[in-house]
């Protein structure tokens, strides 16, 4: 599927393939990008129903609402399908387990003067992922309450709208930050587009993961020292 050869953990301790290390497999990337499209549609249609200036520009309440509701109901589908796929969902499940695990390095990462050695995901990425999963559950639940109002009391619906709004603002901020960080790190961004990252990048930003995948200590000099540009932290 990928033109680029992937490197797996090598017990013999050979040098990592210069072509790069697989960061996200095909399933993970498909889940990411379908979810990304749904989230952008939800944020855009949500804004059109929430922010006065946009609402008056867009109008068409029923169409906007219908698109928002359909995208919202579809939101969990890619992730659930990906997780449940017996063979192809393996990478996704493994990453979910990584995100769920919080170790001493993660706690160190969160401290102001951090000199942590993150694994495949750093503590910020883990917390953000957890927040987004929770926000997805909350937004879906409160959204259902707003879409089918007959089943709930007025006060519960008012509460649901209130919660929906705050979590949506949180997701909007998180997604904005996510995009800004992706644009600031083109290698990480390419990792989600093509699935592969250079070993050098992995060693620098996710040293524990680099060691795990390549079997090489991350602190060792690169095999090609003149290409090191002093970005190590």
């Amino acid at each position: 599927m990928d033109a680029v050869a992937a490197t797996r953990p090598d017990p013999a301790g050979a040098e990592p393939d210069p072509a790069g290390i697989v960061r996200f497999d095909r399933t993970e990337r498909l889940v990411h990008w379908t979810t990304a499209v749904l989230v952008l549609v939800l944020l855009a249609t949500g804004a059109a129903m929430y922010a006065g200036p946009i609402s008056t520009l867009v109008g068409r309440r029923e169409l906007v609402k219908t698109v928002h509701v359909l995208a919202g109901l579809a939101l969990p589908v890619p992730l659930l399908v990906g997780i449940l796929m017996p063979r192809r969902g393996g990478g996704l499940r493994a990453d979910a387990r990584r995100i769920n695990r919080f170790d001493a390095e993660d706690r160190r990462w969160l401290r102001p003067r951090r000199a942590a050695r993150p694994g495949k995901f750093n503590a910020g990425q883990k917390l953000n992922a957890s927040f987004l999963v929770a926000a997805g559950v909350v937004l879906l639940g409160t959204g259902v309450m707003m879409r089918w109002p007959g089943l709930w009391s007025v006060d519960l619906r008012t509460g649901a709208t209130f919660v929906h709004d705050w979590f949506a603002i949180g997701v909007a901020l998180s997604v904005t930050g996510h995009i800004v960080l992706a644009l600031r790190d083109p290698i990480a961004f390419a990792g989600m587009r093509r699935g592969v990252v250079p070993a050098r990048w992995a060693r620098r930003t996710h040293p524990q993961w680099y060691e795990e995948v390549t079997g090489h200590p991350a602190d060792r000099l690169a095999p090609n020292p003149q290409r090191e540009t002093g970005v190590r932290r």
Binding site: R101, K126, V137, V138, V154, D155, L156, G159, A160, F162
Partner: peptide, 25 residues
């Protein structure tokens, strides 16, 4: 940890649904 964050936030959301009308007022 991730699970605790998720459950905590979902719980916060549920509390928000129940109390949100009053909090908003």
């Amino acid at each position: 940890m991730g699970r605790r964050v998720v459950l905590g936030l979902v719980g916060l959301g549920a509390i928000g649904v129940v109390t949100g009308a009053r909090v908003q007022d």
